[in-house]
Amino acid sequence: MNIVEQVLAGSKRALARAITAVENEYDEAVEIMQQLYPHTGRAHVIGITGPPGAGKSTLTDKLTKEYRRQGKTVGIIAVDPTSPFSGGAILGDRIRMNELTLDEGVFIRSMGTRGSLGGLSRKTAEAVKIMDAAGKDIVFIETVGVGQSEVDVIKAADTTIVVLVPGLGDDIQAIKAGILEIADIFAINKADREGVERLNTEIEMMLELNQTRVDWRPPVKRTVASLGEGITELLVAVEEHISYLQKSDQLSMRRTKRTKNELMALLDEQIGRYILKNITSSGEFTAVVAAVERRERDPYSVVANLLRQVLR
């Protein structure tokens, strides 16, 4: 059996290796993805995002246990930041999920962002597809701890849960653009802390001002993940969102948009690579750089010229 057949047959080792191949861009990666692609599109993908320390990993752990009680299999991709200086990373999300390690129906993979800035790693979407093809019913994507604008998770997830905690900021934070806009569901975690009422009100007020999404108003759920409180209710909200997606045309719209984005991103990557190989590594390019630096030529017409050469 080759690696693709092994992934489809449920081998964890093959699943792990396939993700590595894709993440490291090994030669066989494209072929693996080509063969796995027809087997994707079955899993429901849930994004979990929010600021550092909000409890994303603990919440993922608890939601996974709930899904396991329902007999569903779960894949988890936990993203943590890569150091911009050394290229190394400490991936520590498993600490909160140790009880899941020996569960045969759960597969957890940690990924470093490796230079990607949107809260995911560059290959997260591919890793989701591999887990999907391996037959996981649910795939969680846990983002890095985000600030205000790392919103890539919506490109990969069907349902996005934004996890907030009381006491992080005043109400103007809630009306800024960014991660608050991407929530399909809000989870106020650590809801046994002071400030929970105020945060709840602020989110509701922000949603009140939001005119654009009338057909689905993101519910606000309170949880204390460490104690397992509010998990069932949060899961009910997820199920409601799934049935909303299915009843409306939202799911197919989101997936069409995703397919388009993925094709564009692949094109972008290939074109970038081609240009890198054919233009920027040539001696001519070095001369052009010098000319632009001396203000003898301007970068805009240089780029237009270079493109004309390549696309001829």
Binding site: R13, S86, G88, A89, L91, G92, R94, I95, T101, S110
Partner: peptide, 28 residues
């Protein structure tokens, strides 16, 4: 190890050998 450019998966305290090897397998 992080500062040397490695990707380090840290799993915390009190792990059984079975947990360690299974995590190593999944994380490849």
């Amino acid at each position: 190890l992080r500062d040397a450019g490695f990707e380090v998966i840290y799993t915390g305290l009190r792990q059984t050998p079975e947990q360690i090897v299974e995590a190593a397998l999944q994380e490849d």
